[in-house]
């Protein structure tokens, strides 16, 4: 199941509706908010750090990239696919700088309050909530693929 969303935080309500629609019969209710969180964090990151139309460089795509149907740099594609006990989440941003979240420095969650910073918390959460992260970048196109083991939908 795949859908395109405009590059704006206002699209989050539609992203949530998309996930809830997918979740029917496919996700255990206990997993749904976690999946929403994972997708929100990556989607928000793409919205905030995408280069935007003004900085756009024509993207030609590549045969090396997975098959996806994003047609506009102003849109972000989200794809969800469940097979047995795994959920595959793929987000595609066709107008991005290279940003591999696997390279981000870990957040020190043991730091005292006065030293804590909100930055990086989203990626920290995602890293803890998924089982595998893949990243592919070429020709301004970022493909983030997240694999998460999930409970049976009707457990």
């Amino acid at each position: 199941m795949q859908r395109l969303f405009p590059r704006t935080l206002n699209a989050l309500v539609d992203v949530v509706a998309f996930i809830e629609h997918f979740a029917v019969g496919q996700l255990n209710p206990d997993d749904t908010p976690t999946v929403q969180l994972i997708i929100e964090e990556i989607f928000t990151n793409m919205v905030r750090h995408g280069r935007g139309a003004s900085a756009r460089v024509a993207s030609t795509g590549s045969e090396d990239l997975p098959d996806f149907e994003t047609t506009s740099p102003d849109e972000i594609s989200i794809r969800l696919d469940r097979s047995s006990d795994e959920l595959t989440i793929e987000l595609v941003d066709r107008d991005s700088e290279e940003f591999d979240l696997r390279d981000r420095k870990p957040v020190d969650v043991d730091a005292p309050l006065e030293e804590r910073k909100p930055g990086g918390l989203g990626i920290h959460l995602v890293k803890h909530l998924v089982d595998e992260i893949r990243y592919h970048y070429k020709d301004n196109v970022s493909v983030v693929t997240l694999i998460k083991r999930v409970a049976p939908a009707n457990a």
């Binding site: 908010p33 929403q36 969180l37 929100e40 964090e41 928000t44 309050l113 006065e114 804590r116 909100p118 930055g119 918390l121 989203g122 920290h124 959460l125």
Partner: peptide, 16 residues
């Protein structure tokens, strides 16, 4: 029902 890092950040700044 739900909180993400955006909400966490606001609570953290308020706490500080």
């Amino acid at each position: 029902e739900y909180i993400s890092s955006a909400g966490l950040g606001i609570l953290l700044e308020t706490q500080q």
